[in-house]
Design a protein around this nucleic acid. Sequence first.
DNA 1: GGAACAATGTGACAAAAGTCATAGACCAGG
DNA 2: CCTGGTCTATGACTTTTGTCACATTGTTCC
Lengths: 211, 211
Amino acid sequence: MEATEIRQHFPTFEKELVDDIEEKSEVRSFTAGEQLMRTGQYFKSTMLIVEGLVKVYREDDQGNEFFMYYLQPGQACALSMVCAVKQETSQIMAKAVKDTEVISIPLAYMDEWMGKYKSWYHFVLETYRSRFEELLVTIDHIAFQAMDERLEFYLKKHVQTLGSKIIPISHQEIADELNSSREVISRLLKKMEQLGKVKLQRNSIEVIHLS
Amino acid sequence: MEATEIRQHFPTFEKELVDDIEEKSEVRSFTAGEQLMRTGQYFKSTMLIVEGLVKVYREDDQGNEFFMYYLQPGQACALSMVCAVKQETSQIMAKAVKDTEVISIPLAYMDEWMGKYKSWYHFVLETYRSRFEELLVTIDHIAFQAMDERLEFYLKKHVQTLGSKIIPISHQEIADELNSSREVISRLLKKMEQLGKVKLQRNSIEVIHLS
DNA sequence: GGAACAATGTGACAAAAGTCATAGACCAGG
DNA sequence: CCTGGTCTATGACTTTTGTCACATTGTTCC
């Protein structure tokens, strides 16, 4: 990985850290749809997203999957960090939405750099903090909000993250990720269309205006 | 705080760290019912629980509160750590259930020790990890389980944490913490009583046998 | 074009949870 | 031992969500 590219996505990193990353890390690529991480897997490295987009899910024993948050360039997977240190597994699944490039950093360096580079230390803690906050927001939504509000939030988030008003997704997929059923989502979307909030096409939803 | 007491609750801490804590930290006491942390508050220190029991809630804008997890002696508040570093606030509320004693560690040392003491570094990361996992379990429950299962889990957790089969709590309080309504909780509890799972008294629930 | 399949639309119904109204049970303080 | 307040019980009803059945509409591929 070239230093300039690293610096571009991780501008807070000091020069020596960037050099260290350049030297000791490994770049890995995933094509859209591929899994970066599977339930029950052990981590030997932590991953920083350089390019692309990753969707992180929670999976329960019965195979229900539940959308938690996106990872974008400049971000890292908090769980891979946290599990790496303790050599534990986690019920997390991550999937590349677009073709994705990550920097894979061996566990040993991740530890070493915590003491060596202030910017790395802050990056790691900030990663924990922000993912923690995301989870809290997620909890708020499931706990306090009705399906229609959650659906609107879901669409909003996707528009934001994809940088496009058109979300290429089926009703069934949304239902799975919100842990609901296709019919319910279809009904709510139809209602939203009648209110002029979205425009429905086959396999995609165009967001017009959300409150 | 005496070194022996610190070592008792935090056995992994190395000697020098315990000495540092003894010297630089401050003990704070809270009586049952008192708040350790309020929504929107800034942290200037992080807190390790030495004695007692603390309940941690999530609060949303409208004042709904939602029970997340307990903190027991030997544990620390992940959020106070994470927010301390970035000097940010969080929508978290913590309340002492029993009379509680905490070690309050100024932000500056918390940072310094991360590089200095391996045991502190691991303690902090382990705190993040375990709280993160707790949140994931919480999400599983809200997302995938019906009220009756969540109620059983709630009771089970309380029995475990309180170390007593008798939980001193009203139906209304449970309803608030599970974000439901009193009638629903009363009905479910009644059903559980008929199944011989619990015994209901005024202001307390005796757990007989949970699946 | 037509078969096969995936995605969506829709009505009818069931189940779970929330709301409302009301009543009884229990408790503490005067 | 009354009284006001809190806690619990319960029936009736509404709303939301989930489920089932089936129709319709696109899409793909021969």
